[in-house]
């Protein structure tokens, strides 16, 4: 009895410690956003009174509405298109049999291991030839067919009962109707989890937007934060405030979809 209690409390202490370690950077970031740059540098860890000043300084340097608008536009369109294309592909890979199916899929998985930096120059040439330089389409297009999300949907589809599909067929549904009216609602939690993953990826994307977006009015929030840190004497209060603001959307989306996310990770169909 005592032993069990001891073990239990040890578990809690350990978990609390782990939780503290993962949450601390966020607390530090939030507190930092309210402090002066000099206070942050000297390690002040309490709530400061500089939040409004930091906000004014940030507004003076950055057109927040425009920058967030750009980021949202890119992230939302990117998420919708990626989910549409990649879930369809994942579904197709699992449901429809073909002799070359596994080969093609293995090839895709192989492509996953190619670092983006290696693809960047040819991709840039491609985008420029298509006259898409400095457009949001150039940022969105290469992300739509996401191999990871295709893989993720294929794995999740393995749990999608064949009986359900057969029943739908007997009822006279066409293939696209089965996908839209049977598969899609059943896999809601998988979609929720994928939404978080894709949105976060699109929202935080840095290297590729950096290369293709050239004028200041097209910049996304990640590029702007990076520019803030480049000053010889950076204003850490302003940088941390911008980082807090940039973290909020993904945080909100995560909390809204939290339950589905956890379910999606466990598998959509029980």
């Amino acid at each position: 009895m005592n032993m069990a209690l001891l073990r239990r409390s040890a578990t809690y202490v350990l978990l609390s410690l782990a939780a503290f370690i993962s949450v601390f950077p966020f607390i530090w970031m939030a507190l930092g956003a309210t402090n002066k740059s000099n206070d942050i540098v000297t390690g002040r860890l309490s709530l400061g009174s500089n939040l409004l000043v930091n906000f004014q300084n940030l507004l003076a340097q950055v057109d927040l509405v425009r920058v967030f608008g750009n980021s949202f536009l890119i992230a939302i369109i990117s998420t919708l298109l990626t989910l549409a294309v990649s879930s369809l592909a994942g579904y197709g890979f699992e449901i429809f049999r073909s002799r070359v199916r596994e080969r093609v899929f293995q090839l895709l998985l192989l492509f996953l291991s190619i670092p983006f930096a290696a693809l960047m120059v040819p991709l840039f040439v491609l985008i420029s030839r298509a006259q898409l330089n400095n457009t949001f389409i150039a940022v969105i297009l290469p992300t739509i067919a996401s191999i990871f999300i295709i893989f993720y949907f294929r794995q999740a589809t393995k749990a999608f009962p064949g009986d359900l599909r057969d029943a739908a067929r007997v009822d006279g549904l066409k293939e696209w109707q089965i996908f839209l009216f049977v598969y899609l609602p059943t896999m809601r939690s998988t979609y929720a989890a994928a939404t978080i993953i894709v949105f976060m990826g699109a929202w935080n994307n840095y290297l590729w937007p950096l290369i293709v977006l050239q004028t200041p009015e097209n910049k996304t929030i990640t590029l702007v934060i990076s520019a803030l840190t480049a000053a010889y004497t950076p204003d850490y209060g302003v940088i941390l405030l911008a980082t807090v603001l940039a973290t909020l959307p993904t945080l909100i989306i995560f909390f809204v979809l939290q339950r589905q996310f956890v379910q999606g990770m466990l598998g959509a169909v029980k």
Partner: peptide, 20 residues
């Protein structure tokens, strides 16, 4: 930023695209 300038110049000069 410095890093961005290096990255962008490198990519574009390598790609031979002076656009932008």
């Amino acid at each position: 930023t410095q890093d961005e300038i290096n990255q962008k110049l490198q990519t574009q000069l390598l790609a031979g695209v002076s656009d932008g």
